[in-house]
Simulated assay, not measured.
Amino acid sequence: MSKNKMALFKRYRFFIFMLIATLIILLFKPALGLNVYHVAINSVLQMLGVLPPIFILIGLLDVWVDKETMVKYMGKDSGIVGILLGFFLGSAAAGPLYAVFPVAGVFINKGSRLANVFIIVGAWASMKIPLLLFEVASMGLKFTIIRFIMDVFGVLIIAFVMEKLLTQADEQEICQLSKKMVE
């Protein structure tokens, strides 16, 4: 096997394994196998409905916001403004969690502080405004406020601890990987 084929196989080995496993399920339990493929196809279609608008918005962000502005508001010296902006961007965002990673890549490439990017990801995962409104209606205001405050502190602690644990080499590797991802 050539190096290119081996690299391609290595890259897609999990997908190939899962394809074989689901084909075996389809062979021995046809109803369950059809359900597996039905769910997989629906998930892919849902993802295709979400990602193009996200990529368009990322492209606009990349073109419209220059690096100096991003560094000013989200960079190393942004302070509380960067933190608040990170919380706002993460909470106001729409879409599933997997949509935040290309967004995070653009922010990293534009010179944002890693802790601020981690705050965006954390807020996107746990503090979306529409979900908070649903939570108030179903769980009550007191529960929602307590959980929200815990999320704020949790996201902040995780973001700053992660940033402190990363070495300079780790930061450079993250920046290089994000540049590859956006290209």
Rank of each mutant, 00 (worst) to 15 (best):
K5G: 09
K5H: 08
M6G: 05
A7L: 14
F9M: 12
F9H: 11
R11P: 02
R13P: 00
F15S: 02
I16A: 01
M18F: 10
M18R: 00
I20M: 11
A21F: 11
A21C: 09
T22E: 04
L23G: 09
L27I: 11
F28H: 02
A31L: 12
L32S: 05
N35P: 03
Y37E: 02
V39M: 00
V39Q: 03
A40M: 09
I41S: 01
S43W: 00
V44N: 07
Q46W: 06
M47W: 07
L48N: 08
L48V: 12
G49H: 01
G49V: 02
G49N: 01
V50I: 10
L51A: 13
L51R: 08
P53H: 00
I54E: 01
I54H: 01
I54M: 05
I58W: 02
I58C: 06
G59H: 08
L60N: 07
L61F: 04
V63P: 02
W64F: 14
W64A: 15
V65S: 07
V65K: 12
D66R: 13
D66N: 15
D66A: 08
T69A: 14
M70E: 01
M70K: 01
Y73V: 13
M74R: 05
M74H: 13
S78V: 06
G79Y: 11
G82P: 04
G86Q: 13
G86W: 08
F87H: 15
F87P: 13
F88H: 13
F88M: 14
G90S: 04
G90W: 00
G90F: 05
S91Y: 13
A92V: 15
A92L: 15
A93W: 03
A93Y: 08
A94E: 04
G95P: 04
G95D: 04
G95N: 05
P96H: 00
P96D: 02
V100K: 01
F101T: 07
P102L: 07
G105E: 10
V106F: 04
V106W: 02
V106C: 14
F107A: 11
K110G: 02
G111L: 01
S112L: 11
S112I: 04
R113K: 14
A115T: 07
V117K: 00
V117I: 09
I119C: 09
I119T: 05
A123K: 08
A123P: 04
A123Q: 05
P130S: 10
L132A: 02
F134S: 12
E135T: 01
V136K: 03
M139T: 08
M139V: 05
G140H: 01
K142P: 03
T144S: 09
F148Q: 08
I149G: 10
I149M: 15
I149A: 15
M150P: 08
V152L: 15
F153P: 09
F153M: 15
G154H: 06
G154E: 14
G154C: 07
V155D: 05
L156P: 10
I157Y: 10
A159K: 08
F160H: 11
F160C: 09
V161M: 11
V161A: 08
M162Y: 03
M162G: 02
K164E: 13
K164H: 09
K164M: 14
L165D: 03
L165W: 12
L166T: 04
L166C: 15
T167V: 12
Q168L: 10
A169Q: 14
A169D: 12
I174N: 03
L177D: 12
S178E: 12
K180H: 04
M181E: 13
V182M: 06
E183R: 06
E183V: 03
